[in-house]
Amino acid sequence: MLFLKEKVDKETGLSFNALLPNLYRDGGDSVAWHSDKEHRIGKNPNIAFLTFGQTRPFRFRHKTDKSLPQIEIPLHHGTLLLISGTTNTYWEHHIPKSAKDMLPRINLTFRKVITRKMF
Score class of each variant (00 low, 15 high):
1 M>F: 12
1 M>A: 14
1 M>K: 11
2 L>Y: 10
3 F>I: 12
4 L>G: 03
5 K>I: 05
6 E>N: 14
6 E>K: 13
6 E>C: 02
6 E>T: 09
7 K>H: 08
8 V>I: 15
9 D>H: 09
9 D>V: 04
10 K>C: 09
10 K>L: 12
10 K>P: 05
11 E>C: 10
13 G>T: 08
13 G>E: 11
14 L>A: 11
14 L>Y: 12
15 S>A: 11
16 F>C: 05
16 F>M: 06
16 F>Y: 11
16 F>W: 04
17 N>V: 09
17 N>P: 02
18 A>P: 01
19 L>Y: 04
21 P>T: 05
21 P>Q: 04
22 N>K: 08
22 N>V: 01
23 L>M: 09
25 R>G: 05
26 D>I: 04
26 D>Q: 05
27 G>W: 00
27 G>F: 01
27 G>A: 06
29 D>F: 09
29 D>I: 02
30 S>W: 10
31 V>Y: 01
32 A>S: 14
32 A>I: 07
32 A>D: 12
32 A>V: 08
33 W>R: 13
34 H>D: 09
34 H>P: 00
34 H>C: 10
37 K>N: 15
38 E>G: 13
39 H>D: 12
40 R>V: 11
41 I>S: 02
41 I>F: 02
41 I>Q: 06
42 G>N: 11
43 K>P: 07
44 N>E: 15
44 N>S: 13
46 N>D: 15
46 N>I: 01
47 I>A: 03
48 A>M: 04
49 F>M: 06
49 F>R: 00
50 L>V: 11
51 T>N: 03
51 T>A: 15
51 T>V: 13
51 T>W: 01
53 G>N: 06
53 G>M: 05
54 Q>G: 03
55 T>K: 14
57 P>S: 11
58 F>K: 00
60 F>N: 02
60 F>I: 03
63 K>V: 10
66 K>E: 13
67 S>A: 13
68 L>E: 05
70 Q>S: 11
70 Q>W: 04
71 I>R: 02
71 I>N: 00
72 E>T: 14
73 I>G: 02
74 P>V: 03
76 H>F: 09
76 H>M: 08
78 G>E: 10
78 G>F: 03
79 T>Y: 08
80 L>E: 07
81 L>W: 01
81 L>M: 09
85 G>F: 06
86 T>N: 14
87 T>R: 00
89 T>E: 15
90 Y>M: 06
91 W>E: 03
92 E>D: 15
92 E>C: 08
93 H>D: 12
94 H>R: 14
95 I>R: 00
95 I>W: 00
95 I>E: 00
95 I>P: 01
96 P>L: 00
97 K>E: 15
99 A>R: 15
100 K>M: 04
100 K>Y: 06
101 D>M: 10
102 M>V: 05
105 R>Y: 06
106 I>V: 15
107 N>S: 07
108 L>G: 04
108 L>N: 08
109 T>M: 02
111 R>V: 12
111 R>N: 11
111 R>K: 12
112 K>A: 10
113 V>D: 11
114 I>W: 09
115 T>A: 10
115 T>K: 14
116 R>F: 12
116 R>A: 12
117 K>Q: 13
117 K>Y: 09
118 M>D: 13
118 M>N: 13
